[in-house]
């Protein structure tokens, strides 16, 4: 429950800020000069802030669009970018890289989305995106914007953006762990440029390592509903958490569920890869998440990224690919494994 909203003086009065504030009645609204004054304070306690989240609404004066991380998969697109207009999310996942990346545990939402869309237009033009040079823009890595659609309405904005004109080869990916179906109805699948990716894991991993996220059943049901509504849908079995005695059993069970829902062949792509994180983030994550078993597993650092030892990484990839093809019925060409290609 958010009890304090910090809003930049500059964004107060903008429809976005007013709408968000009106949706949290009873919260104290504190006017601030710049969001950075709050977000980058000294000696913040990330874990405590995460438990008692406040919301900051600001204006992004820098870039919205950045190069996609080499630790993520584009699912076959030649140009891979990510867009950050909201930071931190309401979920609490033990393996989340945000714990190693963010100085603050508070939610941050930018109100100047028109600047964001202009920048995206410019990037599409600069990259000469076409059917032959496809671009994937991931818009929800730093925040589960789908889960917060009722508060921010970002998914609707992106849906309107992709439907406003034809941009061949351009795809926006909204990744989520939320199982609410009603938000799907806010978006329009007609352009084919909006892809929903449900991040899924085993039921046991969800129970053990995630908080304030939907159940596996709800996520798969939402994914199935989105497919029925005509959306391109992906599943991200990413990161694969190989912890606990029964992790392999868990992923087998997950693939069986995908198969039972008849989703295997209808999926646009399945993205997978073992847990990995920039080594610098892992150090901070261990401090910020002292009770996360994932943070304290044994990792190897390769090219600045900490991940499972190479042998284990390969074994995970092979096992998951096998389970996805043999049990879930996903064509191998649609499986994008971090270990396999890293793109």
């Amino acid at each position: 429950m958010i009890d304090v909203i910090y809003a930049e003086r500059e964004v107060l009065g903008l429809p976005f800020a007013e709408k968000v504030i009106s949706r949290i009645p009873g919260a104290a609204v504190v006017t601030i000069d710049r969001w950075e004054d709050l977000f980058y304070r000294k000696k913040q306690n990330y874990a405590l802030q995460k438990k008692e989240r406040k919301l900051i609404i600001g204006r992004n004066r820098g870039s919205f669009v950045m190069e996609g991380s080499g630790n993520c998969q584009s699912g076959g697109a030649e140009v891979f970018k990510y867009c950050s207009f909201a930071k931190n999310c309401i979920g609490g996942c033990d393996y989340c890289y945000l714990q190693g990346m963010m100085r603050s545990g508070n939610l941050l939402a930018f109100a100047n989305m028109e600047d964001c869309f202009s920048e995206v237009e410019a990037v599409i033009e600069k990259e000469q995106v076409s059917e032959d040079k496809r671009m994937l823009l991931a818009v929800s890595y730093d925040n589960d914007v789908y889960a917060l659609e009722g508060l921010f309405g970002y998914v609707k904005m992106w849906s309107d953006f992709v439907n406003s004109k034809k941009r061949p080869g351009f795809t926006v990916e909204v990744r989520t762990k939320c199982g609410t179906k009603s938000f799907i109805d806010r978006a329009d699948p007609s352009s084919g440029s909006l892809v929903f990716t449900w991040s899924v894991s085993t039921g046991e991993n969800i129970r053990r390592f995630e908080r304030v996220t939907s159940t596996l059943e709800a996520r798969l049901a939402a994914a199935s509903y989105a497919l029925d509504r005509g959306f391109r849908v992906r599943l991200a079995l990413d990161p694969v958490i190989a912890a606990g005695r029964d992790w392999k059993e868990g992923y087998r069970d997950l693939c069986e569920r995908i198969s039972l829902l008849g989703m295997g062949e209808r999926l646009d792509a399945v993205l997978t890869g073992g847990f990995r994180i920039p080594a610098d983030y892992l150090k901070i994550m261990r401090r910020n998440a002292p009770c996360s078993p994932v943070a304290f597993d044994t990792y190897e650092v390769r090219n600045g990224t900490a991940g499972y030892p190479a042998e284990k990484e390969r074994a995970i990839s092979e096992y998951i690919t096998k389970a996805l093809t043999k049990i879930a019925g996903v064509p191998e060409a649609r499986i994008f494994s971090y270990d396999k290609d890293g793109t």
Binding site: I32, D33, E52
Partner: peptide, 23 residues
């Protein structure tokens, strides 16, 4: 919840521990 002065940036203490008093 906010502390300002003519010297420097405002300071924002985190209200993590709930209070029964007005902010």
């Amino acid at each position: 919840i906010k502390c300002s002065s003519r010297n420097g940036r405002p300071f924002y203490p985190d209200v993590i521990y709930k209070s029964s008093f007005k902010l």
